[in-house]
Amino acid sequence: MADFNASDLTCLRGERLVFGGLSFAAKSGDAIMLRGRNGAGKSSLLRVMAGLLAPRSGALCWNGENIADDRAAHQSRLQYLGHQDAIKPVLSVRDNLRLWGQLRGVSQLDAVIDAALHALDIHHLARITGRYLSSGQKRRTALARILIGQSDLWLLDEPTVGLDRESCAELSQLIADFRATGGIVIYSTHIDLDVKNPNILDLDDFAIPMVEWLTEHADLNDDTNDSANMQHSVSPQEAVQ
């Protein structure tokens, strides 16, 4: 039984406060759907969860242990799907997937790749090179990647972009299967993905004005104080935008 939670997360991008005071908790089998308008920080939150981006304050814990303490362990249990499909135009679909299996030390890799290709219904494309794939096929190849190797956490950033209706249904099925085996899925989407009772995390609720956050955290450290002085002339509305 795994649990993944965070308390009081703050994300700062450049001079802009993306979200602040964000907390969530998830345990095995849970799904969290991230909602919010464009720029609310859905992608940033997923990157923070993956460890690609360090939160400005707050901590993420897996089974009570801070993920920053053991990066490698966190990275080996998560699968991340970003905006980009990371598909090399000159390599076949199978060769594209092979690298990710090798990096995770997957045994019997060919069989695992076959299973992933079947799950996404792209087995007939295995030998096609990346440059001849349509954008939907590329997205499905990227989705096949997250099936390669054991994982406990899926972080999916807009997984449905470029997918047709059938593929969306397949994705829903994959998510359901993964949750049934005890996985945690955290995803952002603009269209309705058929996922059974997800917890909804609305990032618009955590968009707090910069000035307010700075006064709350004035004691955090010195360089925040500096930017606090700089930001005083900015009105709260401007700061969140």
């Binding site: 993956a50 690609l52 990275q75 998560l78 970003g82 980009q84 990371a86 598909i87 090399k88 990710w100």
Partner: peptide, 9 residues
């Protein structure tokens, strides 16, 4: 193409 990000992960 996003490969570097995944390599880092």
């Amino acid at each position: 193409d996003g490969t570097l990000e995944l390599l880092a992960l």
